[in-house]
Structure formats: structure tokens, C-alpha cells
């Protein structure tokens, strides 16, 4: 039992999720990047990286450079980004 718990902890410690914030959200959250040891989905990553800040209704999410949803699952090594509606062009 002890052995399997140790393995679980070891596995969690080995995970790495990169979280990025852009534009007004970067300013609101107060930092550009956060590294998380674990997050099951984008929503959990948001909650952990913002200290449970309420997610804006128009929040956009990208996982590994593609648009995703808050419910989208995260895997070890993923990069999840949060940003407001885009306004280029």
C-alpha cells in the first residue's frame, strides 16, 4: 500500500502542465506563466493557476495551440492558455 501511494505521488510529481495567460487576463491574474504539477482539465488548471478566480463568460481556452474547452482533458506536458476574445487584424 505504501509502495503504491509512493508511486502515485511520484507520478503526480512528474507531471507538468504549463499555463499561460494573455492580454487583459494576464493583467488581471497578475502573471504570464504558471507550471502546475497536475490538472485533470482546463477548468481545474484555471482554478489552480488563478487561486479560484471566477472564469469570465467569454474566456477562451487553447490546449497545445488549438482552441479547446474548459472541460477538455489535460495530459502530462500539455500547454494550456487562457485569453479573452481575440481582436487582431
Amino acid at each position: 500500500m505504501v509502495s503504491s501511494n509512493f508511486k502515485l505521488a511520484e507520478t503526480i510529481n512528474q507531471m507538468s502542465i504549463q499555463v499561460k495567460f494573455f492580454a487583459s487576463l494576464r493583467e488581471k491574474v497578475g502573471h504570464n506563466d504558471v507550471e502546475l504539477a497536475s490538472a485533470q482539465n482546463a477548468l481545474e488548471a484555471w482554478q489552480l493557476a488563478t487561486n479560484n478566480m471566477t472564469a469570465p463568460e467569454n474566456l477562451l481556452v487553447a490546449i497545445n495551440l488549438d482552441y479547446a474547452k474548459l472541460e477538455s482533458t489535460l495530459n502530462d506536458g500539455d500547454e494550456v492558455a487562457f485569453f479573452p476574445p481575440v481582436t487582431g487584424g
Binding site: F22, S24, A62, Y67, F83, P84, V86, T87, G88, G89
Partner: peptide
Amino acid sequence: LIEELKHQAPFWKK
């Protein structure tokens, strides 16, 4: 292209 760029490409203006 300009319409899709404005709605998809991750740029922001301040």
C-alpha cells in the same frame, strides 16, 4: 482571410 484572422488568430489590441 481577414474575417477569419480577426476571429481566430490570437492577437489582442490595447
